[in-house]
Simulated assay, not measured.
Amino acid sequence: MMELKLSMVVKLLWIHCLAIVCTSQDFDFFYFVQQTQWPGAYCDSKQSCCYPSTGKPASDFSIHGLWPNYKDGSYPSNCDPGSNFDPSKISNLTQRLQRDWPTLACPSGDGLQFWAHEWSKHGTCSESILNQNEYFSTALNLKERVNLLQILGDSGIQPNGDLYSLESVKDAIKGGIGYDAWIQCNTDTSGNSQLYQVYICLDASGSNFTDCPIFPHGKCRHNIEFPSF
Results as ranks from 00 to 15, higher is better:
residue 2 M to L: 14
residue 3 E to I: 13
residue 7 S to K: 15
residue 8 M to V: 07
residue 9 V to Y: 03
residue 9 V to M: 11
residue 9 V to K: 07
residue 11 K to Q: 07
residue 17 C to N: 09
residue 18 L to A: 02
residue 20 I to S: 00
residue 20 I to M: 05
residue 22 C to R: 08
residue 22 C to S: 03
residue 23 T to Q: 10
residue 25 Q to C: 01
residue 25 Q to G: 04
residue 26 D to S: 07
residue 30 F to I: 05
residue 33 V to F: 00
residue 33 V to M: 07
residue 33 V to L: 13
residue 36 T to H: 01
residue 37 Q to M: 11
residue 37 Q to P: 05
residue 38 W to A: 02
residue 38 W to K: 04
residue 39 P to C: 03
residue 40 G to C: 08
residue 40 G to Q: 01
residue 44 D to I: 02
residue 44 D to T: 06
residue 46 K to A: 12
residue 49 C to K: 01
residue 50 C to E: 09
residue 50 C to L: 09
residue 51 Y to C: 03
residue 54 T to E: 06
residue 56 K to G: 03
residue 56 K to Y: 04
residue 57 P to I: 00
residue 57 P to K: 05
residue 58 A to P: 02
residue 58 A to W: 00
residue 62 S to K: 12
residue 64 H to C: 08
residue 64 H to R: 13
residue 66 L to V: 02
residue 66 L to I: 06
residue 67 W to A: 01
residue 68 P to N: 05
residue 69 N to V: 01
residue 71 K to P: 03
residue 73 G to V: 12
residue 75 Y to D: 02
residue 78 N to I: 00
residue 78 N to F: 14
residue 83 S to R: 14
residue 84 N to T: 15
residue 85 F to I: 10
residue 86 D to W: 06
residue 89 K to Y: 03
residue 90 I to L: 08
residue 91 S to P: 06
residue 92 N to P: 00
residue 92 N to L: 13
residue 93 L to N: 03
residue 93 L to V: 05
residue 94 T to M: 13
residue 95 Q to L: 15
residue 101 W to E: 02
residue 103 T to G: 05
residue 104 L to N: 00
residue 104 L to P: 00
residue 106 C to S: 09
residue 107 P to Y: 04
residue 107 P to C: 05
residue 111 G to S: 04
residue 113 Q to C: 07
residue 115 W to I: 08
residue 116 A to H: 02
residue 116 A to G: 12
residue 121 K to M: 06
residue 122 H to M: 10
residue 126 S to F: 01
residue 126 S to A: 15
residue 129 I to E: 01
residue 134 E to W: 05
residue 135 Y to I: 12
residue 138 T to L: 10
residue 140 L to K: 08
residue 140 L to V: 10
residue 143 K to E: 04
residue 146 V to T: 06
residue 150 Q to G: 05
residue 151 I to H: 01
residue 152 L to R: 10
residue 153 G to C: 11
residue 155 S to C: 11
residue 158 Q to Y: 15
residue 158 Q to R: 15
residue 160 N to Y: 10
residue 163 L to N: 10
residue 165 S to M: 08
residue 169 V to D: 00
residue 169 V to T: 08
residue 172 A to F: 09
residue 172 A to Q: 07
residue 173 I to N: 00
residue 174 K to E: 15
residue 174 K to S: 09
residue 176 G to N: 11
residue 179 Y to D: 03
residue 180 D to Q: 15
residue 180 D to R: 14
residue 180 D to C: 07
residue 181 A to Q: 06
residue 182 W to Y: 14
residue 185 C to L: 11
residue 186 N to F: 11
residue 189 T to W: 09
residue 189 T to K: 15
residue 190 S to I: 00
residue 192 N to H: 13
residue 194 Q to M: 12
residue 195 L to V: 09
residue 196 Y to F: 14
residue 196 Y to E: 02
residue 197 Q to T: 08
residue 197 Q to R: 14
residue 199 Y to L: 10
residue 200 I to Q: 06
residue 200 I to F: 01
residue 201 C to H: 04
residue 203 D to F: 11
residue 203 D to N: 15
residue 205 S to H: 11
residue 205 S to Q: 13
residue 205 S to E: 13
residue 207 S to V: 12
residue 210 T to Q: 14
residue 211 D to M: 00
residue 211 D to N: 12
residue 213 P to L: 10
residue 213 P to S: 06
residue 214 I to S: 03
residue 215 F to S: 07
residue 215 F to W: 12
residue 218 G to Y: 09
residue 219 K to W: 07
residue 224 I to W: 05
residue 225 E to F: 04
residue 227 P to H: 04
residue 228 S to D: 14
